[in-house]
């Protein structure tokens, strides 16, 4: 097989990740897409491939991605696809498509309005419909089971959770250990906020990337893996799928400087960090991560965008973006980016 084509992130943009937006999906996407394209100075009509990520269950309306297409200007008709997943997986699809060699640019976007429903109810619909969903077990409770399992191993303490929360949320007074539990052992500061938002990334291949961007974030490796759905069938304290994806993405071939980890719960950052075998010298989640803002279906793509931005801004030479999907880190994606090709 010949050497793979080089593909880079050349721009990233996002809306504000507010607790609640007054915009609809197309209006949100318009804001993020327009900003990302302007930063790349890429006219809409020159986009080679377009792919998005979203979930109908956030707004309760089927086909939500269809309306969002209005923000793209899909005329003349465009090459376009959609994953009912976090936008990080849309980025993966775009990367695969660019490897074909016939097109040079791709637009990836994700949108999600988590504030319209109650996520503790909505996300129950993600579970096994025979054994789990009928119990009504909510995402905070599932995460708490995972957190307890981690505490039981002795590899982490509630103080460790609080330290993650303090760093990510940057709240005044930190994350007190005498705060009440939401679902023990998780406190409010260990759980993600509810946010709405959209994010967009422009990808380009080879010389096109160099032409569009002074310092592209070259994708050195990207891979994703899924684990069993049943919590009882896996070791919740390890993220084996993250480890697998990290190896495939070449995380360990050189040091990572900054890692943006999609860990909606504080203990999950510890699990993902360990699965990635990131040393203590790695800066983790300077953006605040999903503990600071967690627009569902967007937060994973945003991690990759934030990690890419560190290279675009010349703050780092080698960064990592991670995205997760499903209960207790069931599915994970790892993307390694570098400054030079």
């Amino acid at each position: 097989m010949s050497a793979r084509r080089e593909v880079a992130i050349v721009s990233y943009a996002q809306t504000s990740f507010a607790p609640h937006t007054k915009l609809n999906d197309a209006e949100l996407v318009m804001e993020a897409v327009t900003a990302a394209l302007e930063r790349a100075q890429l006219p809409r009509k020159q986009i080679g491939f377009c792919v998005s990520g979203s979930s109908d269950y956030l707004t309760g309306m089927p086909f939500s991605f269809v309306g969002a297409l209005d923000a793209v200007g899909a005329w003349p008709p465009i090459q376009e696809s959609h994953v009912e997943m976090d936008g990080a997986w849309a980025l993966y699809e775009a990367w695969v498509r660019l490897l074909h060699g016939d097109i040079d640019t791709a637009l990836v976007y994700a949108f999600g309005r988590s504030s319209l429903g109650d996520l503790q109810d909505v996300l129950v619909a993600q579970l096994d419909p025979y054994y789990l969903a009928p119990l009504g077990v909510d995402p905070n409770s599932l995460a708490a089971l995972q957190a307890r399992a981690l505490l039981d191993t002795g590899r982490a303490s509630e103080r460790d959770f609080a330290e993650v929360a303090t760093r990510c949320k940057r709240t005044a007074g930190g994350a007190p250990l005498d705060a009440p539990y939401v679902v023990s052992p998780l406190r409010a500061h260990d759980c993600p906020p509810v946010n709405d938002g959209a994010a967009a990334i422009v990808l380009a291949a080879g010389d096109r990337a160099r032409a569009l961007c002074k310092r592209p974030a070259w994708i050195r490796g990207i891979d994703h893996r899924i684990e069993a759905h049943s919590l009882g069938a896996r070791d919740l304290t390890r993220s084996s799928s993250t480890t697998l994806a990290a190896v495939e993405a070449g995380v360990h071939t050189a040091p990572i400087e900054i890692a943006e980890l999609h860990a909606p719960y504080s203990h999950q950052e510890l699990i993902v960090k360990e699965a990635l075998q990131l040393g203590d010298g790695v800066r983790i989640n300077p953006s605040g991560g999903a503990l600071a803002a967690n627009p569902l279906m967007v937060a994973g793509l945003a991690r990759i965008g934030e990690a890419a931005q560190q290279i675009l801004d010349d703050n780092a030479r080698r960064t990592l973006g991670h995205a997760t999907s499903g209960p207790c880190l069931q599915q994970n994606l790892v993307c390694v980016m570098e400054a030079s090709s």
């Binding site: 007054k22 309005r113 429903g117």
Partner: peptide
């Protein structure tokens, strides 16, 4: 599932 639909601008 209860939602609050927002029509947008």
């Amino acid at each position: 599932l209860r939602y609050t639909v927002n029509a947008g601008r």
